[in-house]
Amino acid sequence: MAAHLLQRLLGTVGVLFSMSILIFAVVHIVPGNVAYAILGEYATPASVAVLEAKLGLNDPLPLQYWRWFDGMLHGDLGASLVMSRPAGPLIMEALGHSAILAGLSFVLVAASGIALGIYTATHQGRFSDKIATLAQFVFIAIPDFFWAILAVLLFASWLHLLPATGYAPLADAGVLNWAAHLVLPVLVLSCGFVAHVSRLTRSSMIEVLQSRFVLAARAKGFSNRRVLWRHALPNALLPAITILAVDFGLLIGGIVVIETVFAYPGLGRLLVFAIEHHDLPLLQAGMMVVTATYALANLLADLCYAVLNPRIRVGSAAA
């Protein structure tokens, strides 16, 4: 198992490093971008030149990259051009807010998605399964931003039950208010993924239920409950981890849209803000943080997979 994990760790480091190069390259690929972005389209070449010199944009690209990368290693994520503040604290605060949203949604998606998947797999072919399948189709297909619009319309505008936008810090507003601001974003973010996860879990569970060792367990006269919980489920865990890892990535993508709709002050909204205002250093730094978060999540998933899979945990050492 050690070899396996070391391999994964090295892979993650490699990916982070390559990603930083890619992000940097993409941002700087169009020359004159940053300066014009700040000064506007009608800036004079002279002022552009001055700004470029000041920001060190005339140096060779590898040097600029190294400056940025080195800075990141020391905790300096650059500075936001628009807000004239260090990017680091901005991003971290936004990350914290997004983490709450992502965390709550992920727990909801994992719990209900897997539970629903197992339920439909064990009731395969029955009416409840067909209804669930139909619902899954619909929920996967409808875009999350449309759900968001509908939810805001229904709960905020018409029913006045929940706030439509924003975020209330726990310290200031109290638990109820804090929670109220989170309900809609979490629900909307989760619904598509619950459908996706439950669909994938269903098919992997069906596969496990049709395997020979489940047949053998039934042949040994164990009750259906025992066969399901003790024999089938442990084998459905591993594919579930893979499914959840993929969906976590999609969740991160969904957060960008949801935060925009609900004006939730998270990292996604910050990135969109950076794009709208051509705040390229902020964009660079923000992308790096997102990549690192996703990479860490994947590493964690790999770790869980390695621990739960006897073949990796114990190795193939013969008895």
């Binding site: 020979r212 047949l215 053998a216 367990a217 042949a219 006897p310």
Partner: peptide, 16 residues
């Protein structure tokens, strides 16, 4: 009634 199958690789639960 006990039963022994052919393909024990498939018949033993890999997770237990």
């Amino acid at each position: 009634i006990g039963v022994v199958f052919q393909d024990t690789s498939a018949v033993l639960n890999p997770a237990l």
